[in-house]
Design a protein around this nucleic acid. Structure first.
Lengths: 243, 243
DNA sequence: ATCAAATATATGTACATACATATAAACATA
DNA sequence: TATGTTTATATGTATGTACATATATTTGAT
């Protein structure tokens, strides 16, 4: 295998090393608990210092992807078949899994200048337009969620896509962008006028507010998603196990 | 404050530094957004190298307890309850780790006949009394959550326990009951009269409603927990990774 | 007074180096 | 053969040093 680090790149060496290690981990060659090359040799091969390599290794150890043992070596941690993968259903899949038929009430595609929060998350300026996708969705009887999504320009969406298709299918199949990490924040709020109008409720009524930050394999931001759910129409479920 | 590291100890310096930092984080002096001493000075004060100090800092940053910003400084991360299934921290532990002092405003212990939902979850009849624990908790300035817990009779709680201690400590140390699996449901609601009164908000105001089903190692039910969180005082964060 | 440039401050990146220590394998001894 | 002992190996700990870079403040020119 060819392992390379670009010393001329402006990407920090330890980040390049980290990315490289993530790929090593995915390599079937090291899948079943086989040991990675030792730190000293690997550092030499990559032409970086052992300290820098360890910086990358530490991160993966903290994430639980690697296991190190003094005097022995470093190996890939066993893949935990946790219920996390369950969390990886898209909205349509999720609803389908619950047996709820989905109706799309509204669909808006626009190019906008991002606000501070979005630009900051994407690490771009507020001068660069991004694709904004707004959708009002719910059951046949009425809408119960209003979604607002922003996509990183890197993704390459044109706005001409058929957004009635599942979003993640579009991203994965057409643009080879795979969501890998998601950070969410869930809180309760009072509905503002705009959202209340869309969800057909009184302003001030409680809603569930869900903010999602979606990253690809390289932990680069790809989607910023806001969800406004009508109360009592939506329950967020989580299953966690101590290990 | 006197900060000390024992160079003669056989405990590695970076571990001592880590422990020391965890205490700093809990110190009200640095609670919620105040900057820690800068790395160079702190290292000097502790008589360890900056590299060693950063080893400790990194760990806490990875755990999300500290936030560093280049050119600015390092501060204690803001409070939020996270469900990193890895950590599995209880409410008090989580708050303690973030240096938020918890105040218990009310504590009620009663024996009651369970309602349908509780009896069903515990797989007992509604004729068998169970221990009910109600707690109003929050920051010193005011309460922000009202908890209602029911415990399976099998656990063996008498109601005479000191519930100011962390709940999971009582269960694990005194009753050898270890929570292992938790299923949660999170939704938004309008506060009823009762809850509104407790949380000191208007009836009808939005609250976050969190239902937890807790099981032991044998997947037997041990606790049924309801949490009513004041909106805007509480954000539930989740991080999930596809594997 | 305003805006641009320099500066102070704190974290970020990277290297070379040295020695400590846990583990397993090779070796030597009774 | 069984059992200590050494040795090879790989990670763990720790330091000192140097320069880069993001942010806020101060300074200076217009």
């Amino acid at each position: 295998m060819k392992l390379r680090i670009d010393h001329k790149s402006h990407v920090p060496l330890h980040l390049q090393a980290e990315e490289l290690l993530r790929n090593l981990i995915r390599d079937p060659q090291f899948a079943d608990g086989k040991f990675l090359p030792n730190e000293v040799d690997l550092a030499k091969e990559l032409a970086i210092s052992r300290t820098t390599l360890r910086q990358a290794l530490n991160k993966l150890v903290y994430e639980g992807l690697l296991i190190r043992k003094k005097g022995i070596g470093t190996k890939v941690a066993e893949a935990s078949v946790s219920s996390k993968s369950k969390n990886w259903l898209s909205f349509s899949q999720e609803m389908q899994a619950r047996g709820i038929p989905i109706k799309n009430f509204e669909l808006h595609v626009t190019w906008v200048y991002p606000d501070e929060a979005v630009a900051n998350f994407f690490d771009i300026t507020t001068q660069k337009k991004v694709l904004k996708l707004e959708r009002l969705r719910g059951r046949p009887e009425g809408p119960f969620v209003y979604f607002v999504s922003f996509f990183h320009p890197r993704v390459g969406l044109t706005g001409e896509e058929d957004f009635k298709r599942p979003l993640y299918e579009i991203l994965e199949k057409d643009y080879r962008v795979v969501a890998n990490l998601s950070k969410e924040e869930i809180s309760a709020k009072a509905a503002g006028k705009f959202i209340a109008g869309k969800l057909e409720i009184e302003p001030g009524s409680p809603i569930l507010f869900r903010k999602r930050f979606v990253y690809d394999q390289g932990e680069r931001p790809i989607e910023y998603n806001l969800g406004y759910y009508k109360a009592d129409s939506f329950v967020y479920t989580i299953e966690s196990r101590r290990e």
